[in-house]
Amino acid sequence: MLAFIVTTIVCFIIYLLLTIGSATGASDFFNLGLWSNEEILFGVILSVIVGAIGRKIFVKKDFRMLNPVRWFTFLFYLFIPFFWGMAKANFDVAYRVITGKINPGIVKISPGLKTDLGITMLANSITLTPGTLSVDIDEDKNDLYIHWINVKKEALKKKPIDYKYVCGSFPKWVRRIAE
């Protein structure tokens, strides 16, 4: 039942975002100047249908992502460490595009994450941050194979490579958000 409610509410919020600006005038039930009555009614009906059909796909096992602390941690992660890493990545790529200096290789890291959501978030973060691109994943151990555009020599001494060289403190943040 909780899975059904969560799915319905998320669907309804997305529907409201997509139909914003459909107001017709003072006859609206919620007179904010944003939505008309018809859109809100139809949105509720559609959300209930989608929630009934898709609740088992949307909510897998538990409800740990309902915790608002995780949402705010995610937003903080998105705007400060992640955005800063992304800006650095772009100046790094700009430098390599202009000078043409590359030293590439594919390395394996073990971030030690367990859930699907966590490993997806980490792989996407790695792709968008300095000099790294996730190529493949070992689905048994959740190890990631990373294409690294500028392999550091001191990182190659120990196997498997310490993830600090590749993605900094991202696994800690992702563990705090998704696990």
Binding site: I102, N103, G105, I106, I137, Y145, H147, V151, L156
Partner: peptide, 14 residues
């Protein structure tokens, strides 16, 4: 990968 220094994925199955 061209000019690769190291390739951990080479020949491995995932």
């Amino acid at each position: 990968p061209v000019k690769a220094v190291v390739d951990d994925l080479e020949g491995g199955t995932t």
